[in-house]
Design a protein around this nucleic acid. Structure first.
Length: 582
RNA sequence: CGGGGUGUAGCUCAGCCUGGAAGAGCGCUGCGUUCGGGUCGCAGAGGCCACAGGUUCAAAUCCUGUCACCCCGACCA
């Protein structure tokens, strides 16, 4: 029936080093992490490093196959770049310092410095600069599936955050922003198909474009409580953004006419909640002071008391590379009165104000004197800021900027990222082309990434039950799990050979459990390992005229002749896949 | 980097408080048994009790330090 999958064969379980565990190691908490270990797909080596077993690697290869097919279908060209990078490339782009300790560094025998690539914008730019010369070469999208190295401060969640991992990274090169939109849209569409085929439900969300600059940036997020990112979703207009990027309207201020400034004694009251309660006002009627360092320089941030600072928005507003909370020693050094600080009278340190603090009237703020606060603090009259910007963190219940509906928050895992880079890298790394008029111009770039191992984790998170994994067809290590009961008896051996031939003829691959174990163990392992279809060959099934067919996701069991069973599996597979690869 | 937790057999864990011969279940090997949802029996193999130092006649156990791993946070192109 389906002969489009050449070279597919069955494998014997006892030769495949499939070692399932009845219990998962105690440290594994996520369902995907536990099942990866229990099913024997991976073996941990060190924090953020995993070995893949033959079974686990087959899934990885399937995910990569889907990615290749869809990237190729979108017109992208596969390349391969070194993982070992001369450090000069990273200094040229300025990211050697930006990446900080995340960058793995090493030195060769001649004392030349290298980095293990955490990503490949620099190297792809190098390749592009040597190959792209004319507008006639554009547009072009290059991609690779390659190992990345990142010295993460905290690897976590099994395959969710690794220190060495595989990424499909793609980079588009265009003559201008208009055609970049087309390249970006093509990558976006390919990503949708990839995640759909792999069985990972994702939502595209607006993301921060970070210090690199650039324009649009979207993440494909798999919504799950196991996620490490916070996503804001609008039930009204389907606006979706991650917490760093999310735009919103904070609760309105309490209206009023400016009243005279008044100093009050607030003994021992330091937090917003304490001060507000003591003075009988709402938190949104207070002014909160937070101290940061931006690229080493002190920054005084003023924001309404009921809101929190979004450090990414603050960083972007300042145009800073790095923003971090000021440590206590520095707070003392600058003479700031933690607990009673306010921008009133602050002169030595630049003040950044959130719009919320500027628009509200008669706020309660610190007096910059211990145990004292000020009533009726008003912007413009009592204090000023060197920069006013929206730097507040969106929270559940805040109003959607677009439609006013209350936003909801969910946790999610970033599965992929598409990003309009612009000309920044092209200029720094020298990726230029000659346009029709012979003028030298920088390429407009986009970049697009998917984490392969993370896909495996997400596939399991999204496709499992209490018995184990339930692989989607396209990524399953095998199509069929053949449970052999009573192996060793000649009629059974004959039947198994018949089943193998029938499956092979239908282009199906099978994992044949030929182990000398009890039926109970085999059925439990079949559920745990999660192949989409299961065939049982036993004396009982032969008596009933064939082999027993059952699908992992439930449904009725049926006893059929081997050939009909194989045919039914092939049909189920095709029906589920629909039109198949695009 | 801050907070919390855990390191004893391949896995899950007991033993530590109160120092005195290293244990159980699962898994693994062999023999037998059983054969449709983690059979049963017998016999085995397997441990530098994370590492280092200290206290003690004696340390898995008490003390100090280090390392590793996990969780929360910070961080995360």
């Amino acid at each position: 029936m389906s002969f489009d999958r050449p070279g597919r064969v069955s494998m014997r379980m006892r030769q495949l080093l499939v070692k399932t565990l009845r219990e998962a190691p105690a440290e594994a908490e996520l369902a995907s992490h536990r099942l990866l270990l229990r099913a024997g797909l991976v073996v941990p080596l060190a924090a953020g490093l995993y070995c893949f077993t033959p079974l686990g690697w087959r899934v990885i290869r399937n995910v990569e196959r889907i990615i290749r097919e869809e990237m190729n279908a979108s017109g992208a060209l596969e390349v391969h770049l070194p993982a070992l990078h001369p450090i000069e490339l990273w200094e040229q782009s300025g990211r050697a310092a930006l990446m900080g300790q995340t960058l793995f560094r090493l030195t060769d025998r001649k004392e030349r410095e290298f980095a293990l690539g955490p990503t490949h914008e620099e190297v792809i730019s190098y390749l592009a600069s040597r190959t792209i010369q004319s507008y006639r070469d554009l547009p072009v999208t290059l991609y690779q599936i390659q190992t990345k190295f990142r010295d993460e401060p905290r690897p976590r969640g099994g395959l969710i955050r690794l220190r060495e991992f595989t990424m499909k990274d793609a980079y588009s090169f265009d003559t201008g922003w208009e055609t970049l939109d087309a390249s970006y849209d093509a990558a976006f569409a390919a990503y949708r198909r990839i995640f759909q085929r792999a069985g990972v439900p994702v939502v595209p969300v607006a993301a921060d474009s970070g210090a690199i600059g650039g324009k649009d940036s979207q993440e494909f997020v798999f919504l799950t409580d196991a996620g490490e990112d916070t996503i804001l979703l609008c039930p009204g207009c389907s606006y979706a953004a991650n917490a760093e990027k999310a735009e919103f309207v904070p609760p309105p201020p309490v209206p009023g006419e400016p009243a005279p400034l008044e100093r009050v004694h607030t003994p021992g009251k330091r937090t917003i909640a304490e001060v507000a309660a003591y003075l009988g006002v709402e938190p949104r009627q207070t002014l909160k002071a937070v101290f940061y360092r931006a690229d080493g320089n002190p920054v005084f941030v003023a924001i309404r008391g009921d809101l929190e600072v979004n450090e990414v928005k603050l960083k972007n507003a300042l145009g800073a590379r790095e923003v971090e909370p000021m440590d206590e020693a520095a707070v003392r050094e600058y003479g700031l009165v933690a607990g009673s600080a306010s921008p009133v009278g602050i002169e030595d340190i630049p003040v950044v104000a959130d719009t919320s603090a500027v628009e509200a009237v008669n706020l309660v703020g610190g007096a910059n004197v211990p145990d004292h606060h000020l009533r009726n603090v008003n912007y413009g009259r009592d204090w000023n800021a060197s920069l006013v910007a929206e730097i507040a963190l969106a929270r559940a219940g805040d109003a959607c900027r677009a439609c006013g509906t209350a936003l909801e928050t969910r946790r999610g895992i970033e599965m992929g990222h598409v990003f309009k880079l612009g000309t920044l890298y092209a200029e720094k790394m020298g990726v230029y082309y000659l346009d029709e008029s012979g003028e030298r111009r920088p390429c407009v770039m986009g970049c697009y990434g998917i984490g392969v191992e993370r896909m495996l984790a997400a596939i399991i998170e999204a496709n499992h039950d209490s018995d184990g994994i339930a692989w989607p067809w396209e990524v399953a290590p095998f199509d069929v799990h053949v449970v052999v009961i009573g192996a060793g008896e000649p009629p059974i051996a004959t039947a198994v050979a018949e089943v193998e031939a029938a499956l092979s003829a239908h282009g199906l691959e099978a994992l044949i459990d030929d182990r000398d174990d009890s039926p109970g163990i085999k059925f439990k392992d079949a559920d745990l390992l999660g192949m989409p279809a299961r065939l049982t060959v036993s004396p009982r099934s032969l008596e009933r005229g064939g082999v027993e067919l059952r699908f992992r996701r439930g449904g009725e069991t049926a006893v059929l002749p081997a050939n009909e069973a194989a045919s039914a599996i092939a049909k189920a597979r095709t029906d589920t896949l629909g039109a198949g690869p695009s």
